[in-house]
Simulated assay, not measured.
Amino acid sequence: MTQVNARVLVIDDEPQIHRFLGPALDAAGFYHLRADNGTNGLREIAQWNPDVVILDLGLPDMDGKDVLAKARAFYEGPIIILSARDKEGEKIEAFERGANDYVEKPFGIGELLARIRVALRQRAGTQPIATKVSFGDVSVDLELRYVTRGGEQVRLPPKEYALLSRLIGGHGKVLTHKELLVAVWGPAHMDDTQYLRVAVGQLRQKLEADPGAPTHIMTEPGIGYRLILD
């Protein structure tokens, strides 16, 4: 359900984007804020503390990734990148600098609104992690390090449990391959993506209803993984 009057700041220098997005956001129950460059965008973030920021990367006064990095010095809310840049490296760098999501132009307004709602739900859930979380028929007691599926205990090796815990701590955010490898295997293995693929595959076999079509341990192609909690 939409958070009524949630403030959505759109930082984009294309007037047609604001003409298109403004009415759509208003109709969906959001309060639309606008900035046309990075400098004004940072000022608006500081002044309004919006619930969600939509950020273009191709701004006239500074690169959007620099705006992202500067915003992360004082803003903890969700930032969704909206950009025509579709190169994998651009996406990875945006996520590593703190983006929560990445939507390519051209985009469908329905998809963008859905991603805004997901971001709002994630922000509402960014209080310290509960000791017990669940997804599907899986329950995880983080204090006891105890995992069950359908009421039956699932025994996970230390690396698989560490990976699951890190994904839970992401609150639904995409975590890059490098982030996960460093967190679970250490800096010496930041490029050993095969370790990560195998561990994710094992988790899906043990925790997903259909490992071949997962609904909770999700892949962001070329970038990383996210865990969708109930």
Rank of each mutant, 00 (worst) to 15 (best):
2 T>M: 14
7 R>K: 15
7 R>L: 08
11 I>S: 00
13 D>V: 03
16 Q>F: 02
17 I>P: 09
18 H>I: 04
21 L>D: 10
25 L>Y: 03
25 L>C: 10
25 L>K: 04
30 F>R: 00
30 F>T: 09
31 Y>K: 14
32 H>K: 15
32 H>D: 08
36 D>H: 13
37 N>D: 15
41 G>Q: 06
43 R>W: 10
44 E>M: 12
47 Q>P: 01
53 V>P: 13
59 L>I: 03
62 M>T: 07
63 D>I: 03
67 V>G: 08
69 A>F: 03
72 R>K: 11
73 A>G: 01
76 E>Y: 02
77 G>H: 04
80 I>D: 10
82 L>C: 09
84 A>S: 10
86 D>Y: 09
87 K>I: 01
90 E>M: 12
93 E>P: 12
94 A>D: 05
95 F>L: 12
95 F>Q: 11
96 E>N: 07
98 G>D: 04
100 N>W: 08
104 E>H: 14
105 K>L: 12
110 G>T: 07
113 L>E: 10
115 R>T: 08
116 I>D: 07
117 R>F: 06
119 A>R: 05
122 Q>D: 01
124 A>W: 00
124 A>H: 12
126 T>G: 00
127 Q>M: 09
128 P>C: 13
129 I>W: 00
129 I>N: 05
133 V>K: 01
134 S>D: 06
134 S>M: 04
135 F>A: 13
139 S>C: 03
139 S>G: 09
141 D>Y: 02
145 R>E: 13
149 R>H: 05
150 G>Q: 01
154 V>Q: 12
156 L>C: 07
156 L>R: 08
157 P>Y: 00
158 P>M: 15
160 E>N: 13
160 E>Y: 07
163 L>F: 08
163 L>S: 04
163 L>T: 13
168 I>F: 00
169 G>H: 12
172 G>S: 04
178 K>G: 01
178 K>Q: 09
184 V>Q: 04
192 D>H: 09
193 T>W: 10
196 L>I: 08
197 R>T: 05
198 V>H: 08
206 K>L: 14
216 H>F: 15
219 T>M: 10
225 Y>P: 00
226 R>W: 10
227 L>M: 11
230 D>Y: 07
230 D>H: 11
230 D>A: 12
